[in-house]
């Protein structure tokens, strides 16, 4: 692909970089416990938690780095961090 004049880039191309490969621990969600408060979706620095059709969190493991912030902040302890098998 030809270079852009002046090193400008098209929006959101960072998505080509799948940061999920960095993960050591993986967040696993327990919808039984979840009250759909939305905290995890709000604070994920990877923008990798979305809402599913029923309003539960849905993780995009392509980008989740496994930082554990969501699990730490979940008021319902609905998220556990599980070691990735590699």
């Amino acid at each position: 692909m030809a270079l852009n004049v002046g090193c400008a880039g098209a929006p959101g191309r960072a998505r080509d970089n799948k940061t999920g490969s960095w993960r050591v621990f993986k967040p696993v969600f327990d919808n039984e416990k979840c009250n759909k408060c939305g905290t995890c979706m709000l604070i994920c620095p990877e923008v990798s938690i979305d809402e599913d059709a029923e309003g539960y969190p849905k993780v995009n493991y392509d980008y989740c780095k496994g930082c554990g912030l969501c699990a730490e902040e979940c008021p319902k302890d609905a998220i556990s961090m599980i070691q990735e098998e590699k």
Binding site: A14, T19, P45, E46, V47, D50, K58, D62, C67, G68
Partner: peptide, 23 residues
């Protein structure tokens, strides 16, 4: 896969996991 159309800062950046500035 969601494209996060309402987000203007998107996935795939290279900050440390849990980075405050990224948030």
């Amino acid at each position: 896969m969601s494209e996060n159309t309402c987000e203007f800062f998107d996935s795939g950046h290279r900050a440390c996991g849990g980075c405050g500035p990224a948030l």
